[in-house]
């Protein structure tokens, strides 16, 4: 399976332009790449979030594919219903049987927090769909509130920095590992700057026999406080510092798809984002040491998981 950009560029874009996402937004980059990577016609369910409110301003739509939005929390259940209805209609001979890809786009708010139990249920029921989490580490659409994906120490409007507090006090939830624990055929972590890695993972998810989940890091220039042209650079720094390792879990087998070595200290990634400026102004800040220690610990745990198939 090789992906060539010049060949991919021949196909018409399924995600149009004129949407209201911010200049430099990584979400639309990833959505375009994901739709371009698909081999089957997609049917999309959207959770509420930046992507939904910016691309479906009534009476317009940016999408050129069938799309359904019902509520914030239940995009996974909605696509499960669509998939089950399609199978029933095919069985009754009322619809043509052809390969379709059922797809969900949800933000980290819709995935980590609000839609968690609905997603878990849909995965357990085994609907064949791909769930894409566009993770920008906060509720950016409503004004940069913290979510359970927000990094330790990050400034948000609900975790302010000052004399009494220094950004978010808690470590984030490891959603990709939680989803992997459901035992579904395909789980992966990807990032916006690496189109080839993301698109390859989407193709693998499409081929999976059952539900699949891809957690895509989509840096938010407004919420993370960096200049819009730096989106890809920040995404790469997050990966290289080990804050967002690239890996996949295929049928229970863990595999790193990015570097097996951390290339940078976390400080490099934190310095690129002004949401950490209250801690990065002092290189000896205890929060930075805490982040580095936790990243090192999780990296070693991930390497141990990835080593398991090799020893069998």
């Amino acid at each position: 399976m090789t992906l060539k950009l010049r060949e991919l560029s021949l196909a018409p874009d399924l995600f149009g332009n004129g949407h209201g996402l911010c200049a430099g937004c990584a979400e639309s980059v990833s959505v375009r790449q994901i739709l371009a990577a698909l081999e089957n016609p997609p049917v999309v369910a959207l959770a509420t979030g930046c992507l939904e409110v910016s691309t479906t301003r009534f009476p317009d739509t940016t999408w050129k594919v069938p799309l359904i939005h019902s509520a914030f929390e239940n995009a996974a259940t909605t696509i499960g219903g669509v998939e089950a209805a399609y199978k029933a209609l095919v069985r009754k001979g009322r619809m043509e049987d052809r390969p379709l890809t059922f797809l969900v786009f949800g933000g980290d708010g819709a995935t980590y927090d609000i839609g968690f139990q609905w997603l878990s249920g849909a995965l357990e029921r085994g609907h064949k769909f791909i769930y894409i989490c566009l993770n920008n580490e906060g509720y950016m659409n409503t004004g940069i509130q913290r979510s359970s994906a927000t990094l330790l120490g990050a400034w948000t409007t609900t975790t302010p920095s000052g004399d009494a507090r220094s950004g978010k006090p808690e470590w984030h939830k490891d959603m990709t590992k939680i989803i992997a624990a459901h035992g579904i055929p395909y789980v992966a972590q990807a990032a916006s700057h690496n189109w080839k890695d993301l698109m390859t993972k989407v193709r693998k998810a499409e081929q999976a026999d059952g539900p699949s989940f891809i957690n895509v890091l989509t840096p938010c220039d407004r919420g993370w406080r960096f200049e819009p042209e730096k989106t890809m650079e920040v995404s790469q720094l997050m990966v290289e510092a080990g804050l967002w390792p690239l890996y996949e879990v295929v049928e229970g087998k863990w595999k790193m798809t990015g570097a097996r070595q951390k290339k940078r200290p976390v400080m490099d990634a934190l310095l690129s984002q002004k949401r950490f400026s209250h801690i990065t102004k002092n290189a000896d800040d205890a929060t930075i040491a805490a982040i580095q220690a936790k990243v090192d610990e999780e990296w070693d745990a991930l390497l141990a998981l990835c080593a398991i198939p090799d020893t069998q």
């Binding site: 149009g16 332009n17 004129g18 949407h19 209201g20 691309t55 479906t56 301003r57 009534f58 009476p59 317009d60 739509t61 940016t62 999408w63 050129k64 594919v65 799309l67």
Partner: peptide, 10 residues
């Protein structure tokens, strides 16, 4: 919405 990609006019 009945016009795919209609935000093109924006």
């Amino acid at each position: 919405g009945v016009n795919p990609g209609s935000t093109d006019r924006v």
